[in-house]
Design a protein around this nucleic acid. Structure first.
Lengths: 197, 197
DNA sequence: ATCGTTGACTGCATTCAATGTATTAATACA
DNA sequence: TGTATTAATACATTGAATGCAGTCAACGAT
């Protein structure tokens, strides 16, 4: 997959910014760290930070982009199978991705901990979930035009994501282990989409 | 109901700020208006704006505070009745408050329209919903300690609010009438809490 | 009626996220 | 080797939000 020295250097800079940010946030909290500090710790200019990340909080979600695509992919591939079953499988795929991406690494826990003390970060997180939710809802509506209208799809996906996000935040905030958190996510999903129905 | 000249003046200032903000936002969009402009239009200093509202977006939610209390009140009063029924009634009360507070006045529509073009505002709105959700969830958990644990309560309330918020945003964004929006909210609530069950 | 207190409001300075512009320097490519 | 990209930099600016010191009107007690 095309190495390219330029590309590699860029990636290294990006990675350095992510690592510096995580380390500093752990030390001093989200509001206790400025973008300038992160950039300095990664030995680049402040302007370069915003060349890699749109906002300060973006640096904490560097790896979250593929997650939603995973869900959309399931919906695209399994079109034809029963709607609620497909949605359940999409959710299960995303939960799996969270598990071995953010849950075991402790990144998810860090985010929840930081968000508890930094409203700006909390707002940013919620917005990401909402954007993902909107994309999923649109895809589902397009895949099942006879069963769902726009509003119905939004309600169903909103319920699913709403349940899982709230359960996850609560479980992590309570200090649960990664396994317990994953169970909480699954139970929340089953609350909206019962397995035998 | 103690009038008090000082109190009245303060309220007038606050109201002037709200009205100036709404008018300017309608004219030039959310990002197209600065706090300084709003303050100038209300003939007060910029500093005074932040004396009345914590953030720029706060001015658009001046009347939303009592809504959550309404829901909490229902949960407190009806304790003892079946849990899901009480939660449904709490939601119905809040929907009613939205109806004759923001829906008929067009304020809700304005917020959705503005939020579509201003990520910062969208994030702020979502955060408000999440805060409300957390409070409701806590109250419900305390009212029904045998039926719900923290995570279960979060999941249930998260599903309910998530469904209603998503359906509302979609319905408004599609240009529906206030009646249609209210119907969408009710259907979304019934998706999570079926009436006959 | 007067005086001390409270509290709403102001002006000014500062921090910090985020953006625009112009420039430098290293990589890529012919 | 020379030319075109492009990551990264330096510098300046906007705008939200906060801190602080000071003004003046409203209030309450004597």
């Amino acid at each position: 997959m095309e190495a390219g020295l330029r590309e590699r250097k860029k990636r290294r800079t990006r990675q350095a910014l992510v690592e510096a940010a995580v380390r500093l946030f752990e030390e001093k909290g989200y509001d206790g760290v400025t973008v300038a500090e992160i950039a300095a710790a990664a030995e680049v200019s402040t302007r370069t930070f915003f060349l890699h990340f749109q906002t300060k909080d973006d640096v904490l979600f560097a790896n979250a982009a593929p997650r939603i695509d995973l869900g959309l992919q399931v919906i695209a591939e399994r079109a034809g199978e029963p709607m609620r079953e497909v949605l359940g499988r999409a959710m299960e795929a995303m939960i799996g991705h969270v598990w071995d991406g953010d849950l075991t690494s402790g990144l998810a826990a860090l985010r929840v901990r930081l968000a508890a003390g930094a409203p700006a970060l909390q707002a940013g997180m919620l917005q990401r979930f909402f954007t993902a939710q909107t994309e999923l809802s649109g895809a589902l509506c397009r895949a099942y035009p006879d069963e769902l209208d726009e509003v119905g799809a939004a309600a169903l996906v909103g319920a699913l994501i709403g349940a899982v996000v709230a359960a996850t935040a609560t479980s992590i905030g309570r200090g649960d282990s990664p396994d317990q958190v994953r169970d909480a996510m699954r139970r929340a999903a089953e609350l909206v989409l019962p397995p035998g129905g």
